[in-house]
Simulated assay, not measured.
Amino acid sequence: MAASEPKVEAQVLQGDGAFPNNPHLPLLVYRRAIDPGGPSAAGEFEEAYERNGWTGSWRNGVFAFHHFHSTAHEVLGIAAGSAKIQFGGPEGPIIEVNAGDMAILPAGTSHKRVDASDDLLVVGAYPQGQSDYDMLRGNPDETPEARERIAAVSLPEADPLFGPDGPLLEHWQKSANA
């Protein structure tokens, strides 16, 4: 069951050389977004994503190399286990996430698994219309065009877990209008 009031951590990540990140929208980490002891955390994330228009869901982990998507935002729900993920490129913060947590990455946000428990299970998805995403690994020759694509990615219509009134829209609309 989704938490009624998750603790939300928001951080705008500045560009890190070949990793542009998103200069306007913050990375959001929801602590205990769902009950980590639930019998089907993965299913709970998937059902919420589908209900709120986040598509192309998948179950896996996080790649152990820096990468980002310039054509889509992405949500990572930690269904089981724990991980340390570096966001923002080689100089970015390393954030520990645990079962029940969820990270929402604005388009352009570099991410890399630094360490993980053996039972890590991540459920990811993309906003409606953005599931045809690219995957870039920080080639400096691609950065200028990637920045243009990042700027053109539209805001999602709903928070992946809490719907149209969720914390995502509050944080991102405020940042986009600043």
Rank of each mutant, 00 (worst) to 15 (best):
M1Q: 14
S4P: 14
P6E: 06
P6L: 00
K7H: 15
K7P: 12
V8W: 06
E9P: 06
Q11C: 15
L13V: 06
G15Y: 02
G15D: 07
D16T: 00
G17F: 05
A18P: 13
A18S: 14
N21G: 00
N21R: 03
N21S: 05
N22Q: 05
P23Y: 03
L25Y: 02
P26H: 09
P26Q: 06
Y30N: 06
R31V: 09
D35R: 04
G38M: 04
A42M: 11
G43A: 12
E44P: 12
F45Y: 13
E47K: 11
Y49E: 08
Y49H: 05
N52Q: 03
G53A: 02
W54N: 05
T55H: 12
T55K: 09
G56C: 01
S57F: 14
R59P: 15
F63E: 11
F63W: 08
F63H: 12
F63N: 13
A64F: 08
F65C: 13
F65P: 12
H67S: 09
S70A: 15
S70N: 11
H73T: 01
V75S: 08
V75K: 03
G77S: 10
G77V: 06
G81T: 07
G81L: 09
K84N: 15
K84T: 15
G88F: 03
E91P: 01
E91D: 12
G92F: 05
G92A: 04
P93I: 01
I94L: 08
E96Q: 14
A99Y: 08
M102F: 11
L105Y: 02
A107C: 02
G108M: 00
G108P: 00
T109R: 03
S110T: 00
S110R: 01
D115K: 13
A116K: 09
A116C: 06
S117T: 05
D119R: 06
D119Q: 00
L120V: 04
L120G: 07
L120W: 00
L121G: 01
L121M: 08
L121A: 02
A125I: 04
Y126D: 07
Y126K: 00
P127N: 03
P127S: 04
P127R: 01
Q130V: 09
S131V: 09
D134Y: 07
L136G: 02
L136Q: 10
R137F: 15
R137C: 13
R137V: 15
D141T: 09
D141I: 10
E142N: 14
A146E: 05
R147Y: 04
R147T: 07
R149C: 14
R149N: 14
A151N: 03
A152P: 08
A152S: 12
S154I: 05
S154G: 11
L155A: 00
D159K: 03
F162P: 11
F162C: 11
P164W: 05
D165I: 05
D165R: 10
P167A: 13
L168P: 08
L168F: 10
H171A: 14
W172E: 05
Q173V: 12
S175D: 07
A176P: 07
A176M: 04
A176Y: 02
